[in-house]
Write a protein that binds this DNA or RNA. Sequence first.
DNA 1: TGTTAATTTTGACATAGATCAAGCCTTAAG
DNA 2: CTTAAGGCTTGATCTATGTCAAAATTAACA
Lengths: 242, 242
Amino acid sequence: MHKPAPNNSLKTACSTCNLRELCLPVNLSNIEMTRLDDLITRKGVYRHGSILYRSGDKFQALYAIRTGFFKTQILNEDGREQVTGFQMAGEIIGMDGINSDAHTCDAVALEDSEVCEIPFNRLEDLSRDLPPLQRHLHRILSREIVRDQNIMLLLGSMRAEERLAAFLLNLSQRFAVRGYSPTSFQLRMTRQEIGSYLGLKLETVSRALSHLQEGKLINVRNRSLEILCLSGLQASMGKRAR
Amino acid sequence: MHKPAPNNSLKTACSTCNLRELCLPVNLSNIEMTRLDDLITRKGVYRHGSILYRSGDKFQALYAIRTGFFKTQILNEDGREQVTGFQMAGEIIGMDGINSDAHTCDAVALEDSEVCEIPFNRLEDLSRDLPPLQRHLHRILSREIVRDQNIMLLLGSMRAEERLAAFLLNLSQRFAVRGYSPTSFQLRMTRQEIGSYLGLKLETVSRALSHLQEGKLINVRNRSLEILCLSGLQASMGKRAR
DNA sequence: TGTTAATTTTGACATAGATCAAGCCTTAAG
DNA sequence: CTTAAGGCTTGATCTATGTCAAAATTAACA
């Protein structure tokens, strides 16, 4: 495991960030936007494998991903591990920590990544002054709830291949929103990490990928993935309830 | 399915509610508490089986459960259903709707229940004035995220009997907090609903209950459940990872 | 109160996915 | 460039849980 590069505390400007529409799509005046800029600092680069925060760390800030890719995972007492999400540029992580003032999961960089730090106390202060910002914060929190509940649906009621199809379609859609190809991208995580996220063993993930490939729905070679038939993938979900 | 009783719009007083410490444990002055009271109205009784809100309904309010028991569930396109939670008195539901201004799950009363309606716009307004209330709202939202992620862990990595043990211990603890017996209580939901929540079939739930009973950890007869050995139940989780 | 419908339990059997194992491939390090 | 370590695939087998079915119990309702 690497250490993050030293914190240079570079000032960040949301106002000029090209992820603005994704990350904080709030209608603010110039002067209001400046106040937001003042809040947020760019933290140094997190190298592949390094840890943004750990379970148990004091909660102080949310983090907006500028570039790169993270996973979040929880570990219970007996060492069992569950990947709870994969996060990409423009997404905000750390909300698990608000409740108890301590993080309840680990956030690990899956490639070299940059994040913006948003001190939460100051975000609360500012959001009392700026109702659109307040509303946006609430939406982000709620979105996370909805997202998690959809994963519960996936884990509770889909079979292996459906879970994988849902996972790939979700990635596809998120790449598309960011202006990348929805049909051709690199997987940033191992089969084991995909398996943990989907409640499957890595062998099952591998077999399901192979099977989707046999069916001409995808092409997969190591980490590079090509979706050959989006609608076919969609159809391969929802075949039959478990 | 019954209709809810007509909305009498009774005024509620959080200030005198005996669930206050559970529901809104916020340190407010008397005058501030009055402003909170003004916000909240008691809705009529929801009979067993009736629906508090449905997926797709416009989101307007959060609901605090005064008495009774609810389940929340999502249904995907192909009719698959997943119970996402069971909620009891003092708990707040409806947060799924904030993100998109529409609810994304159904909330169904599992017994005759009363709720307090908290109009969300007005809650936002008031929480801009009252920082402790704002902080509490954020904690509630975050707590829901943490809760959901722990269910992901359960669904993704535990075997049937462990899931059931975790479920029973969770209920036990929540009853304890409310001053009820942690070792003897009624299940308010069917085996099928438990199964949906835990990602299991009802037969598996039934068998796992029988098996825990054979092991002298619980006594179960229909909906009445007695925990004979809390520590044994705890131990029966975390035996072996899947 | 009697009748029907829903819920629960239990058994027999089927199967999706886990486990174990081997070999290959890719990437990182020396 | 070589070697080692981690990651991936595929096959053979095992097992937890699903599926199907029947009977028993309980709850709902006329």
